[in-house]
Design a binder for these strands. Sequence first.
RNA 1: GCCGAAGUGGCGGAAUUGGUAGACGCGCUAGACUCAGAAUCUAGUGGGCGCAAGCCUGUGGGGGUUCGACUCCCCCCUUCGGCACCA
Length: 865
Amino acid sequence: MSVKYDHKEIELRWQAEWEEKSAFAARPGQGEKYYCLEMFPYPSGKIHMGHVRNYSIGDVLARFLRMRGMNVLHPMGWDSFGLPAENAAIEHSIHPAKWTHENIAFMRRQLKRMGLGFDWTREISTCSPEYYKWNQWIFLKFYEKGLAYKRRSTVNWCPGCSTVLANEQVEEGLCWRCASAVEAKDLEQWFFRITDYAEELLDFTHKLPGWPERVLVMQRNWIGKSMGAEVSFPVDGSDEVIRIFTTRPDTLYGVTFMTLAPEHPLVERITAKDTLEEVRSFVKEVVREKKGAGAAALEKLDKKGVFTGAFCVNPLTGAKVPVYVANFVLMEYGTGAVMAVPAHDQRDFEFARAYGLPVKVVINPRGKTLEAESMEEAYVGEGILVNSGPFDGMLNTDAVDAIIDHLEEEGVGRRSINYKLRDWGISRQRYWGCPIPVIYCKACGTVGVDLEDLPVVLPEEVRLTGTGRSPLESAGEFVNTVCPRCKGEARRETDTMDTFVDSSWYFLRYLSPGDDKKPFEKEDARYWMPVDQYIGGIEHAVMHLLYARFFTKALRDLGLHTLDEPFKNLLTQGMVCKETARCGDHGFLSPGEVTGDGKCGVCGAAVEFGAVEKMSKSKKNTIDPDGIIERYGADTTRLFSLFAAPPEKDMEWSAEGVEGSYRFLGRVWRLVTENALLLEDTTTYDEGKDPSLDDSPPLKDLHRITHGTIKKVTGDIEKRFHFNTAISSIMELVNAVYALVRGDSFNNPVGAKVFRESVETVVLLLAPFAPHITEELWQRLGNETPLYKSKWPVLSEDALVKDEVTLVVQVNGRVRAKVVVPVDSTDDDVKEAVMKDARVAEWAGGKELKKFIHVPGRLVNLVVR
RNA sequence: GCCGAAGUGGCGGAAUUGGUAGACGCGCUAGACUCAGAAUCUAGUGGGCGCAAGCCUGUGGGGGUUCGACUCCCCCCUUCGGCACCA
């Protein structure tokens, strides 16, 4: 008697049941809390395999911990403001709101079809006024505290997206989203003062043991802390002073020239009359090169400079050194001026050699004397100071502090710290975002909207042209308003916020999703925060994860909660990849464009296979989850996405692998349905009450394997997130059960009980991975309580104990025999047993036993000569 | 250039503390069932030699530590990721 595994019918039925019962709603206050969160999706249209993997990982964890008795919060929402909605509006004449809401509806259905156990009662969407009202509220609190401010600045302008980008959103001079060359543009912009938190953000990268080291390293590099000194170099024959920042004050006596950034304000003021023309044209050229460098930023520009005709004075030595303008000096970092020490800095060295400038050695490696003339590269290592006045003979690492102290005493410099981190520019000249709640009044100036007037609702009627002006400027009714202070005529800010603002605190909104008095309830935050496990892509290592950390600290300082860090543990999942097909003439080909015998469907040329790359439309190697779910079911799709690789590593999608997972579920299905009568007729083996298994080794083995699997799967899920090995050990258990099913071991009352125990265990252990089929089988096993309310199997340590163990016997490190000994054998017992073995005698007989090594339960190694 | 991660069968991957390398799955081979196929089941499957028992060899390359190394140490190679004029 067999029943077909109808995955679709089973999955839809159980999904309806979970939906109806709100099976996965979190209820604060009951049991130990666990906040499991995956990065919420942008509603781009439909889910892709990256989503499938991300949410499958989170759901396994959430379901597992629920079965372990924890009160799990596992919410879902939508990062629903953003540029694609606007582009769709321009291309297809559909309102961004409509496009977004349709996408959300579609993707929500897809996620539910995946059987993901989310608490849908807490669903949020960042484009809803109920959500972005609190964005605006937070903005105003930041503004009040000076954490939000406006200034004119040179910004990264993406001509493709017609908007400003944050520094974090520029990759190698290109837009992170559309890869257009980023241009410089002067604009009035709102900023968040994330630099106020640079030190704390950096400090806490050392206090997040649950984060992957590489993410922490990336954040540290991004924050880019450098310790050193700021030093003043007076300009000779002028009142002007050039301030420089250096991390190498120990080399101050070796300065032989000075370099300024082309944009440095002093350039115009100190340049000699007769060189002004030359300097100006150089500056122009550099600016032009920098603008054009966007696309070709991979190639570093040649180091170039021009002498200004001016000299400045080294405050320690009194030496006059020439001042150059150089294309490699950045105005944005430090002070825009760099002292040059060619003997001990490679870039300065190259510049000095190119322009015939002197090289002065001030540090000698131990036991060596450097000759400036014959040096072929700068010496950047440690050593002893020379030519450095009172500091001669000092170790350079000690001289750093000594010289800074000296600078401070003389009043010509001070200790200083620099960060690469810049303040976060959040203004975007786009429509589909959160309006910045600010009003400009001729009389009162810049005024924040009153909190009672929030939200500032995004108007529906605007002209979207994508030309670079803020679309909101065209919405007259929105723009023209009255000043909250003087009630006079005023205009609204027409820029919207970077969507990364929306995602910087959404994890807090899930805690109190309906609250209309505050962004979130302090008590809820106290209970649920921090997020115990956050799961998402590595691409957010710097941007989102740094912004969210900043928000958490800033909101703490506003008194909204008391937490330092939002995410206790972070799992960065690998990418979903697939083999590409490529034709020399026609580029990447989709499977449909390749003929049956591996030729290009267009030209018939041989197709190149083998390159495994991240799934992407441009590579034509995507797999649509819908098709897989339709054909194999959500359980198979989830199972395979977890089985193919450990979660933090890239995985390769393979059609055959999916088949394998499907076959496995079929095996489990048949194990229960084909043995329904046997299973119905019995109860689970109970170690305490039922007869001992000592008389039946096969049953005792299976009982032990069953509990070994419980131990292995539990550990793999909770300690290591190694879902792939968890699944394979469940497969091993299934194989072990099948090995006995065809014999007669189970055809007796005790055998049936052991059989039922192992089958129930398979179903329970598999439940987090494949929740539908297991729910169905659980019911078919006659259980009244649905599986989603059931407990994880309990491990019996007693069951794990073996009577005998097989020891591997090595002679001189090579395996030569195996012996079976009682588990409690002493070294001497083992030695006796080993020596009796015929194979051992063959290899070790008649030779001198130098050493006898016994690793209990594992092996024996005889060292003989 | 700097920082980080990784290199294991035909493929995805396993080996948790230095203790039988290749679990589990895919693929492949042979067989059973079938009119046939699909599905399913059984057996085999790192490489070399051998009828076999078995022997040798094998985790990117070279050296080292150890009774014993995929695992620890040193050098090198390759691949991937991040940062990249940061003073």
